[in-house]
Amino acid sequence: MKNQGCEGDRSDGVSVLDLTLHFQNTNDIWKLCDRAWSPQCKITIKAVIINILSAIWSARNNARFNNKVTHWKSSITWIISSTSLAGNKSNCVASSSITDFLILKRLNVTIHPPKAPIIKEIWWQPPMDHWVKCNTDGASNKTTSSCGGVFKNHNTEFLRGFAENTGLMSAFKAELCGAMRAIEIAHSKNWMNLWLESDSILVVKAFSSSVLVPWALNNRWRNCRKLSSSMNFVVSHVYREGNQCVDGLANIGVTP
């Protein structure tokens, strides 16, 4: 970092910001932080400014009160060391900008790259032999709601599907209706090994905590739980990306 009066210092190739700066007052100094730096670069530059002012103040007091002259190289070493500590301790992240890269490296700051997105592999898993799997979903708008489901066997063969308007103005209630309808259909078809899968975590939790079920659906829910207790029954959660087919069926019921 240099100002207009330090052009001669360019011969050593060291210029942290690679800018010619004009400072008329302290406000001009802080305006430097308003540039489009990355968060980590910005906080590092703030640390540079604070440490420069602190080094000047310290050198001035040593000269005035202790009659000691601080060598400029010693001050620069202290400034870079203190700035490096601040930049490395920060939780802020840098950008992929080459300018940010050069500034942080010249100040001995370890670059904190942006957090990479978490990638999860999602796929539909078929049931075991002699089992039937049903994926269910629900959808709602301002006036109505619906549910849908698809039954498949261990060979991923389509057995049956359903899409029903529930008339309820709640997505969660529609999701529960889809789960209950799946149990009712499976029991009527004598599919006694049933794997139910939903993209609603609340629906999955409702099977272990009935207090989550709205009172309006409580009687039907108890009947379905009685049916499922006579079956080999499991329930699991799947991400929406693995439930897209049923999501389309559920949306049919709310489409004008």
Rank of each mutant, 00 (worst) to 15 (best):
S81R: 14
G8C: 04
F172G: 01
G13C: 08
I119E: 08
G138A: 03
Q125W: 01
K205N: 11
S210N: 07
V246Q: 03
K105R: 15
L168R: 08
E241K: 08
F207R: 01
S200G: 03
M231D: 05
N88Q: 11
E7I: 09
I80A: 09
K226S: 15
T70D: 13
S140R: 10
S145E: 04
T255G: 02
L107K: 05
K189G: 00
V16T: 14
K105S: 15
I43S: 09
R220I: 07
E175S: 03
P117H: 02
A182Q: 03
F158G: 03
L217D: 06
N223Y: 12
N243S: 07
K120A: 07
C245G: 05
K89V: 00
L227V: 05
P214E: 08
S228D: 04
S200K: 02
S90C: 02
D137N: 08
S140H: 06
P39M: 08
R220L: 09
W78L: 13
G253I: 01
G248C: 09
V211I: 11
I118T: 13
A116P: 04
T156N: 14
P127I: 07
S96P: 00
T156M: 13
I98K: 15
D28M: 05
N153Y: 08
F151Q: 04
F101Q: 15
G242Y: 02
L53N: 07
N3G: 15
G161V: 01
C92D: 12
E121Y: 08
E7A: 13
A250S: 12
P117F: 00
R106A: 11
F65V: 06
L176P: 02
V213C: 06
P214L: 06
W123T: 15
I43K: 04
L32P: 00
I201Y: 07
H71G: 03
N243T: 06
P214F: 03
V211S: 15
K46S: 08
Y239G: 02
N141M: 08
F172L: 10
C134P: 01
S145V: 02
G248S: 12
H112A: 10
A59F: 01
K142V: 11
G138L: 02
G149F: 02
H154V: 07
R106L: 11
I201A: 10
S210L: 06
V14G: 00
K68T: 12
F101E: 14
G242S: 07
Q125S: 11
F65W: 15
G242T: 04
G87T: 06
L217P: 06
S97C: 11
A163Y: 03
E7W: 07
V14E: 14
C134F: 02
L217M: 10
S140V: 04
L212P: 00
E241N: 12
C147Y: 02
R10F: 10
R181M: 09
G148F: 01
P113K: 12
N67Y: 08
G149N: 04
R60M: 08
P214W: 05
S81Y: 10
I252A: 07
N155W: 02
K133T: 05
W72T: 12
K205A: 10
L159C: 07
K89P: 00
C92R: 12
L32E: 10
